Amino acid sequence: MRNLEEIISLVPDLNREDLDRWIEDALIEAEQEAGAPALSEMQFARVRLICSLRFDMDVEEETLPVVLDLLDQLHDTRARLYTLSQAVMAQDETVKGAVLQALSQRKPRNEG
């Protein structure tokens, strides 16, 4: 866990007002540690992502929730796909072959 002052000192261009607003707007989730707000390593990474979106890519503040939600969905989808692929690989050769056959016959959405 990292306290907010430490995070501000480690992230270029980040100020306390932005960090407090992102916590208030639930873009990041702070936990209490020793009576003060602190962020997990995952939430610290999210702060760095938000800073990159805001300051490097000029994503508007009002757009951040949409972009972050889409990124969260993509991350969740990748995790589910990984779990599914592991489940398929654990099956016998007949089942794996049938799954691969079905995937090879599927047409991409943009091809009709």
Rank of each mutant, 00 (worst) to 15 (best):
Pro12Val: 02
Asn110Tyr: 15
Pro108Phe: 00
Val67Asn: 04
Asp56Ala: 08
Pro65Trp: 10
Asp92Ala: 04
Glu93Cys: 05
Gly35Asn: 15
Gly112Gln: 01
Arg46Cys: 04
Gln105Ile: 00
Ile50Lys: 03
Leu27Ala: 10
Gln32Tyr: 14
Ile7Thr: 06
Thr63Asp: 12
Leu71Ser: 13
Glu24Asp: 15
Glu61Tyr: 10
Arg21Thr: 14
Arg21Phe: 01
Leu39Pro: 05
Asp69Gly: 10
Leu10Glu: 13
Ala34Ile: 11
Phe44Arg: 12
Leu68Ala: 08
Gln32Trp: 10
Met42Thr: 14
Arg16Met: 14
Leu10Cys: 02
Tyr82Lys: 15
Arg109Cys: 02
Ala36Val: 11
Glu41Ala: 14
Thr77Ile: 03
Val88Pro: 03
His75Phe: 09
Asp69Ile: 03
Leu84Tyr: 12
Leu64Met: 07
Pro65Met: 08
Tyr82Glu: 14
Pro108Tyr: 02
Gln32Met: 09
Met89Thr: 07
Ala79Asp: 12
Glu31Met: 11
Lys96Asn: 11
Leu64Cys: 13
Ser85Gly: 01
Val99Ala: 02
Val47Thr: 13
Leu19Trp: 03
Ala45His: 04
Asp92Thr: 06
Glu29Asn: 03
Trp22Gln: 00
Pro37Gly: 07
Ile8Phe: 04
Arg48Trp: 09
Glu33Leu: 05
Glu33Cys: 07
Gln91Ala: 06
Arg78His: 13
Thr94Leu: 04
Glu5Pro: 02
Glu29His: 12
Leu49Ser: 10
Gly112Leu: 01
Glu17Thr: 07
Gly35Pro: 15
Glu17Asn: 01
Leu81Arg: 11
Ala79Lys: 06
Thr94Lys: 13
Val11His: 01
